[in-house]
Design a protein around this nucleic acid. Sequence first.
DNA 1: TAATTTATGGATCAATCGTTCTATAAGTGA
DNA 2: TCACTTATAGAACGATTGATCCATAAATTA
Lengths: 200, 200
Amino acid sequence: MARTGRPREFDREKAIETAMNTFWEKGFESTSLADLRTVLNLSSASFYAAFGSKKALYEECLKRYTDTCGEVTSYLDDSSKSPKQAIQSMLRHTVTVQTSSTSPQGCMAVLSGMNCCDDNKEVETLTYSVRKQTRDAIFRCVKRGIERGELAATTDAESYTLMLDSFVKGISIQAKDGATEEQLLAAVDYLLMNWTSPMN
Amino acid sequence: MARTGRPREFDREKAIETAMNTFWEKGFESTSLADLRTVLNLSSASFYAAFGSKKALYEECLKRYTDTCGEVTSYLDDSSKSPKQAIQSMLRHTVTVQTSSTSPQGCMAVLSGMNCCDDNKEVETLTYSVRKQTRDAIFRCVKRGIERGELAATTDAESYTLMLDSFVKGISIQAKDGATEEQLLAAVDYLLMNWTSPMN
DNA sequence: TAATTTATGGATCAATCGTTCTATAAGTGA
DNA sequence: TCACTTATAGAACGATTGATCCATAAATTA
């Protein structure tokens, strides 16, 4: 049973991907409706009919981001790997994605919705929740590391997580500032020397 | 020889400090002229007579920031301390400033000018240069550490710096997201276990 | 006191913001 | 074919953006 009415002339899924890259690169506030209409090649009416509002589209884009490029929990919750290996895989993947020349540099959840004006605090909150998801997953991984004896039993899981997650979030700034994949992978290696293992 | 003309009715230095805190908290793009006029309690004419433009005021505020709260090179270039101690002092100071309840959380150079619209790329560039200054100072400190034998001679100074600086920049995100001074100081301690010293 | 200089309050500017409206086009179902 | 539904292009909306103008106020200098 086909849908009635005039069919949409553009691919909504592709549009979300394009918009995601725009928000990712420029940030929510600095991406105007005019910007979006330009990259999507849409009239105002089509835009609003398809997406509802700028904010609603951002929400869809952020979801798309966490479902694709920004997805990291699968690495961190993979208990077939040792926690250290899981963290290492996540970090390397993060570096590769955030320095790729085929997408904007840095992490969308760190760069696109940190500082919004008063009218758009929901965007900040939404973006924060994505950052929190990653931190929570790191926390789970660190706890596994302690349980398995891969990290000292005295390790403060919360602070150790904060140490790792600060580094993760900092990668975004470095990538945005022009650090290369090679340099950041080396930085990851240095960080992981910190993984205090009785087995090393 | 006193200045001629009607005297200014407000304290320009205090105004810069107030504006600095506003830019620091909300970011350049999300701080409107109306916001500034409100917190400074100024008419448009007075604002433009005193500061020239929003961009020019931001520039002064960023300078004020690097001269005061955001100043870290003195810690890093203090050769009376060991490089590790210098890094540690810098990190602890950074955490304390960025989690202080008397000023906005996080670092102004990371949070206030990362993502500007096309018209304000100079603001991005300016803010970037502040981030770079810190990174350069860390680099000098790391090199001293290698020279003094405090870090392995094989250490890649650039990547090691990137590791430390990523953590530094990440502190801003964590502070903005609500991490406390205590938690972040503990994270600093964990990070510095990474300082590979033949003397430890 | 008069001339000069700078600051102030408040109206106003063009441009842009995100959004909505109107008329028309293009499809489906009866 | 005709009613119905949805999409389109493009004008237009009120609000806000950063910035300027104008008349007046308050100081210094002569």
